[in-house]
């Protein structure tokens, strides 16, 4: 029998939907471009006065008449704290994710709940915890013993072990990004098809070998993406770092030892933005640092995005790692 097909009025809805999506995508893009341009214009004086050597200078003098500014210590501060945090957080998070994907259902739910809860705690609480709970214990059992034994011989452990320093800030930072990395990694590992695990299992793989042969190779790019997502959080993190890093400025903030006070791009903004007088070179230097931080964050997100998209394509079998 002949069946009459419905007229394709859905096409119209499709079109509107498409327009909405494109507009909102454009809106976000325009917002970011506007932000970059705005930050660049507002920080104009610093680029005019000092030029691009602002990025490689280390001085920081805010006294009027003797002003000189350099962003290098804070750029390095951000890089160093983020790297240390990643070194600590990535293996732990992947371990947690592995554990979570192997636990029986009930405890699984509890662990997932804890991970998601940790991810939603405001960073100032982490900062307070770091300051009040973690710092005294860490100084007593870790910093003082290491500093007194190795401090004289290794620059890495020299300085005064007060607990307001790069390593304390980095560790608390690591704790903050673990939930993010762990929960994304968990989802990625869960998405590895069962048939893959069966293949390894059939060959006589142990639990660990199943991870090594079936899960990691398949999830590799996604796990890198998850880690970079955590890195994005680490780079932007402000409150907890500001509370724990000791807030040095200028050449004193150049990271040399784990037990020295430092400063990151976001913490110097938090520390000095309110005090800086409007229209001063100081404020344009701070805005310049904000611009660098934004570009950092954008790059990291682009890399993460590219890796995750690649991973999805690998799953569909379009490309291979």
């Amino acid at each position: 029998m002949f069946m009459e097909l419905k007229p394709p009025h859905n096409l119209f809805v499709d079109k509107i939907f498409k327009i909405i999506i494109i507009t909102s995508a454009f809106y976000i893009l325009i917002l970011i471009v506007y932000l970059i341009i705005k930050l660049f214009l507002e920080s104009g004086p610093i680029w005019q006065e000092i030029g691009f050597s602002f990025i490689i200078n280390s001085d920081w003098n805010t006294i009027e008449g003797r002003e000189s500014f350099g962003a290098l210590p804070y750029i390095l501060g951000t890089i160093v704290t983020s790297i240390i945090a990643m070194i600590i957080a990535v293996p732990l998070s992947i371990g947690i994710a592995m554990f979570a994907s192997y636990m029986p259902k009930e405890s699984h739910i509890i662990l997932n709940f804890i991970i998601d809860l940790l991810a939603s705690i405001p960073s100032i609480i982490y900062g307070l915890w770091g300051l009040i709970v973690f710092r005294p214990i860490f100084v007593k059992w870790f910093e003082i013993p290491i500093n007194s034994t190795l401090g004289e011989h290794m620059w890495l452990f020299s300085g005064i072990p007060l607990g307001l320093d790069i390593i304390t800030a980095s560790i608390v930072l690591a704790i903050m990004i673990i939930p993010t990395i762990a929960s994304v990694s968990r989802e990625i590992m869960k998405s590895v098809p069962l048939q893959q695990q069966e293949a390894a299992f059939m060959l006589g793989a142990t639990k660990w070998e199943i991870f090594k042969f079936a899960i990691f190779p398949y999830a590799k790019a996604g796990l890198v993406g998850a880690s970079i997502l955590g890195l994005g959080r680490a780079v932007g993190e402000t409150m907890a770092i500001t509370m724990l890093i000791g807030n040095a400025t200028g050449v004193f903030a150049l990271p040399k030892s784990l037990f020295q006070a430092g400063q990151t791009m976001s913490s110097i903004l938090a520390n000095e933005f309110i005090e800086a007088s409007p229209l001063s070179l100081h404020i344009s230097a701070l805005i310049g640092i904000g611009l660098i931080l934004l570009l950092f964050a954008i790059c990291i997100n682009i890399i993460a995005h590219v890796l995750v998209v690649r991973m999805l394509k690998v799953r569909e079998g379009l490309i291979n790692i």
């Binding site: 893959q196 069966e198 299992f201 190779p217 590799k220 690998v314 291979n320 790692i321």
Partner: peptide, 17 residues
Amino acid sequence: RRKVGMVFQKPNPFPTM
């Protein structure tokens, strides 16, 4: 299990290897 090989209903090679 290492003495018993198995071939599955759906092919499942390790795709990235």
